[in-house]
Design a protein around this nucleic acid. Sequence first.
DNA 1: CAAAAGACGATATAACATAACATTCTACGC
DNA 2: GCGTAGAATGTTATGTTATATCGTCTTTTG
Lengths: 155, 155
Amino acid sequence: MSDHNHMHADPEAALARAERVCRERGARFTSQRRRVYELIVCAGEPVTAYELLHRMGGDGGHPAPPTVYRALDFLQAHGLVHRLASQSRFVACDHPETGAHGGVFLVCDRCGRALEWQDERVARAVARSAREAGFELGDEVLPEVEGTCGDCRRG
Amino acid sequence: MSDHNHMHADPEAALARAERVCRERGARFTSQRRRVYELIVCAGEPVTAYELLHRMGGDGGHPAPPTVYRALDFLQAHGLVHRLASQSRFVACDHPETGAHGGVFLVCDRCGRALEWQDERVARAVARSAREAGFELGDEVLPEVEGTCGDCRRG
DNA sequence: CAAAAGACGATATAACATAACATTCTACGC
DNA sequence: GCGTAGAATGTTATGTTATATCGTCTTTTG
Ligand SMILES: [Zn+2]
Ligand SMILES: [Zn+2]
Ligand SMILES: [Zn+2]
Ligand SMILES: [Zn+2]
């Protein structure tokens, strides 16, 4: 019923997968976009746009905000990353090859990590609720809820 | 199963109800808090903190941001208003007397209005999903999803 | 009344995000 | 290869959302 979920996947594999996804869609996985995606994947946890920005520095300084926000817009549009509105942070999608991201984001209020937990039942319950309320759901429906993860509870 | 939901409730009734809720909890419903709450209730739709701020003006000018954010913190803590993270806006709760706010926020991407749709099934599905993932859910669990409301689809 | 806690005012700044326009790069037809 | 159109990026400036900090005033409580 509930899908197993792997975090901290191999960054190389994630990059290769992202490249393939973009090629299949005729989208350009440029160096900037690749760089931002790599930083998000390697972070392994939700990161802010400005954290990415500062990590993009190196030579003389970091780029301007629009640079990273544009890359993020692209990556979101292609389902490679998600924006966690409750945190104003961005996180890599666990399964960018599938079009659907049904389920729920479980955001830990202690360590800040987010689990993209796929669960058909949640997706169906939300869809049903929306229908009954006369709402037509949008494409990117990924509810976020707060709580404490197992690691943090156990100490 | 799904609860009927009334928006645009009588502001006077809402204020009286809020006052009662605070009194029962030993919390002080001060004039600032009352003012902010009234503005949110009367708005009838999600509003930003700065919209509230500017509407609080009148005599010589509006107060400083901390004033409204402090009132909002209080109102949120007592379940009188909710923050919609996906919009960075605040909206009055439909049923502040009950401790639980289980269900889902249906946020319209056209008119911007938000429906606090109570639905036990969504609440249960999310709770079950969290449990299976080893998460302990927090108190204020109100997932938000985007879509188009019935009025906007028909109109 | 005195002490303690809570609420509020005021200033400054941090953090998040986009508008607008110039420039460079890339793909594509010729 | 060359010209062109569209996409991507650079650059500057600004808009929007939220918090830190400290001093003062008010309410509660003993
Ligand atoms: Zn996803
Ligand atoms: Zn945790
Ligand atoms: Zn509520
Ligand atoms: Zn609508």
